[in-house]
Design a protein around this nucleic acid. Structure first.
Lengths: 318, 318
DNA sequence: GAGAAACCAAAGCACCGCTAATGAATGGGG
DNA sequence: CCCCATTCATTAGCGGTGCTTTGGTTTCTC
């Protein structure tokens, strides 16, 4: 009666099993074919190679796995026991390979996209429907977040792709290990009520609207408007404020105010009772997709990014 | 849409998985510790070794498993999927190791012993009870077979140890790849009814019994008796025949016949109404255990063989 | 009894896989 | 705010694993 197992040297910090799983799989082929030579042929190896694997297994196990019976071999009781576990092992391995292949070939995966409202309704919506049709297995999640919150989510690992916009004077801080993919240049438009005197003008400048009452959009847009009007030499009379571009247009349509809206918002929803005019001499906002650098090589994220780019280009071509 | 998987080259006859199971187990440690360095410490390796394993896995899978996040790494979705399967894999491996260790340390296994009657009642019975006590996990099976049938069972793989006897003129054919373990020298005894005239003699020879009526044992014993009496110059008057040594002694006790029985049979069961006398000038039968050569290294068979040897020696020492 | 088939044994060698050393990037602490 | 500690990537190098080759033994078959 031995006090303890002679093979279990606990001083060495190894965690790998004494039985080489590869050898077990090879032994499984021996069990399937019933001979070392047969297994070698299946594996595309020579017979001694297989023989050595079995020998190593037997040395590690301390039990004969094969009984050499003259010509040929017979699996022992212990060998049969190992073969049962070998099936479980092969199954686990097979399942693992398939699940990873699913991820690699876009039959599985998850992409969490964060986007601001007007891009959600345009670029993201198209991209998501495109992806869902092409790759039904991918778990797509779209969350509506303004750029700063989207980037924070990206940094926290709460999303994979952040669709954001920024003005040239933008305060958007992109994480250090992130990549920016330009999606679109989104010029600003002046939105006027029908019959407004300026609608006849070929070109409208910001200071043409110095005496109007205003409705502004989201915080960034409002801040940018203030910067721009300040540069133009006046302070706008802001009467209403909402981040909902449908509401902005409704207010304009009812002649309560004028507004500046990005083209993208107007593509998302256009009130027929307003007129839209290019804003001369004014830098557009830039729309881009931000991803963590390490996420780009994830197939599902890469495919989603490509779909977002396609959607943006399709939108650009009217 | 691709017509088929680019990685599945069916022309090559390989059956081994693209994902090295060892690497998967290493990656499992990465998942457990949360870092490459931590896994390396657990494994007793350097960090680049672990890093290379993960890199190889990622190349084989076509999916990143870790996201390199500045200092440290984070497991990706695909990595988490792999870790789930890695647990199943490790469990299968763990179970396999334990079951083989059970076989190696005699906590599991099977031994099928074939033995002739008088050895079953003596040597085999003691050995089996000894083994059952020492190693409760071993599945012990004893079958009663005369030597020729026992050897045939051994050859067919229907038993692991055959306990047989043979006379010097024995016709027992031992298989080519079998080992013989001598167990005992089993002298023959003359069995006489109480009060028989010869019981007073110091030494009895076979031809002293030429005029008696006989009862014989099993076929081999009967054949050997005929050979011996022929050499002694007479033909015995055989009136009764049975392979049951209890019956033989009963017939002798009722003065129906005399008999020759091996000592082992008399050790197994001794009728108090008979007297037993050494048979001078007569070769004993030899009792031995036969095993296939390949079976001797099977722990349970080896332990059983040792127990049988111990039982035979204990019996020999009265 | 000769040949074929299957396995074992030993030697050789290529390549796998680990180590060592270095560099880069990040995050925490004085 | 700078510096140091920590973590991972990269490269070169080399030792040992593991496969092949060759030859031999045993057994089954014709």
């Amino acid at each position: 009666m031995e006090p303890h197992e002679p093979h279990a040297d606990l001083d060495a910090p190894r965690a790998l099993p004494a039985l080489d799983p590869r050898s077990i799989l090879i032994f499984r082929e021996v069990g399937r074919t019933g001979s070392l030579t047969g297994a070698a042929q299946v594996l595309g190896w020579t017979q001694p190679a297989v023989s050595q694997h079995v020998r190593r297994l037997e040395a590690a196990a301390g039990v004969p796995l094969l009984a050499r019976e003259g010509r040929g071999v017979v699996v022992t009781d212990a060998g049969r026991a190992l073969l049962r576990h070998a099936d479980a092992l092969a199954a686990a391995l097979h399942d693992a390979e398939h699940e990873l292949a699913d991820h690699a070939h876009l039959r599985a995966g998850r992409v969490r996209i964060a986007s601001f409202p007007s891009a959600s309704a345009t670029i993201a919506a198209r991209a998501v429907s495109d992806l869902a049709e092409r790759f039904p297995g991918i778990d797509l999640r779209l969350e509506q977040l303004e750029p700063p919150e989207a980037l924070r989510a990206l940094e926290e690992g709460a999303c994979d792709i952040a669709i954001v916009f920024e003005y040239d004077d933008g305060h958007v801080s992109v994480p250090a290990d992130a990549d920016r993919t330009p999606l679109a240049v989104d010029p600003l438009q002046i939105v006027l009520p029908p019959g407004h005197p300026l609608t006849a003008r070929a070109e409208i400048r910001l200071d043409d609207l110095a005496d109007e009452q205003w409705v502004t959009g989201c915080i960034s847009c409002r801040r940018h408007l203030l910067t721009s009007t300040s540069a133009a030499g006046f302070t706008p009379d802001i009467r209403h404020s909402t981040d909902d571009y449908v509401v902005v247009q409704a207010l304009v349509a009812t002649r309560m105010a004028v507004a500046v809206l990005p083209s993208l918002a107007l593509r998302a929803s256009r009130n027929p009772d307003v007129t839209v005019h290019p804003l001369a001499d004014h830098a557009p906002r830039r729309v881009s997709a931000i991803t963590r650098r390490s996420a780009r090589s994830v197939p599902s994220v890469g495919a989603a990014l490509a779909a977002i780019q396609r959607a943006a280009q399709a939108l650009d071509a009217h």
